[in-house]
Design a protein around this nucleic acid. Structure first.
Lengths: 195, 195
DNA sequence: AACTGTTGGGAATGATCATTCCATAAAATT
DNA sequence: AATTTTATGGAATGATCATTCCCAACAGTT
């Protein structure tokens, strides 16, 4: 074993806790007190291990994006068709209407809207993450076009953007307290818009 | 004329300046310094005339909503058809892609997303405003259904919500720097989704 | 001239914030 | 026992924030 006292906390656990806190409260509104309480480490350790609040947010955001994209990709590659994947994605979002998860929305979209046009690193990173999601959806659209479920006349990138903001819009709806039937009906509109 | 020194500033002008500042910076991120500079009044006057930051935001938000709804209603009632109104609304939004206005987004949606699930008065008010917009769109949808341009099978409220978040999503897209052709393509998706 | 309401800004209050420094304790090594 | 690394928390720093109090200047009225 290496010399010196071994690490007492698991960096993964602490990072996940930080991520959830940012998710719940937003970047600016999350204070160091909140972080320390959630991560269950001391101020000193936080600065030593993660640099500062901004750096911690960046790594937490990247982790969130990685996890999200991994989940999406896994579900995509094992889906019967691209269209089935899209349908399932939206339907699941609508079904989970009242869950806490849905109430929180998506960390990436939340951050992108909160940080808006800021020039800060967190803002840049958030916008990049939105692009990453949109890029993944573009692949999905392209496959759907090959499979014939979406007209090849459509620009794949635009369709992907439509799908992206529809996901974010759906989240906003659910956050505003839309009922499950309303959400399901809205999903139909989105699916119809993609065709 | 009334006794005492007459008002030097026009409350309307100052309120508009405050509104634009909240619009540009968001509620939390707008400091009193920002407000005073934009409104060109003194701290004393602000507190005397508008109460405090929170109260000022509430009146500014209401004014924004009133102006927006008035503009929308005027354009709606003089439109050839409900569908033409919707088409025009979305197309104009896409055409103004690069304008400063579009970059700002909409004060109501910005506030609703920024304040999210907060229990504060500003948050409640923002959610109410989203409902107000959605309510207006419901009327539009109902008229479109009477005119036959939207299937009567659709739930009007759900379609209105779809339209509402599509507007907000379009704004987010433009904020993220989507090109004009992309935005126009996305509008087609939204219109198709409404049918 | 006396009165009344508006305006402006200095100063203080009390709170929160992120960050740094520092001294100390704990747990492992050699 | 000496060393190395990690952990903790008190204290201070410097900044910003919204808000209140207060006093002086201002611009009209009667």
């Amino acid at each position: 074993m290496a010399m010196g006292r071994p690490l007492q906390h698991q960096p993964d656990v602490a990072l996940t806790a930080a991520m959830q806190t940012f998710w719940r409260l937003g970047y600016h509104h999350t204070s160091l007190r909140d972080l320390l309480a959630a991560m269950e480490i001391s101020r000193s350790s936080l600065y030593q291990l993660y640099g500062n609040k901004e750096a911690l947010f960046l790594t937490a955001l990247e982790r969130y994006r990685d996890q999200l994209l991994n989940t999406l990709r896994a579900s995509f590659y094992q889906a019967a068709s691209a269209w089935a994947f899209i349908e399932n994605l939206l339907t699941q979002a609508a079904l989970n209407a009242q869950s806490e998860q849905a109430q929180l929305g998506c960390l990436i979209f939340n951050s992108a809207t909160e940080l808006g046009g800021e020039a800060s690193l967190p803002a840049q990173s958030a916008r990049q993450c939105v692009d990453d999601i949109s890029g993944f959806f573009t692949q999905v659209i392209v496959r759907a076009q090959h499979e014939g479920s979406i007209s090849a006349d459509n620009d794949a990138a635009s369709a992907a953007q439509f799908l992206t903001f529809s996901m974010s819009g759906l989240r906003l709806l659910l956050k505003s307290g839309a009922t499950k039937p309303q959400a399901q009906q809205t999903v139909k509109h989105v699916l119809q818009g993609l065709r």
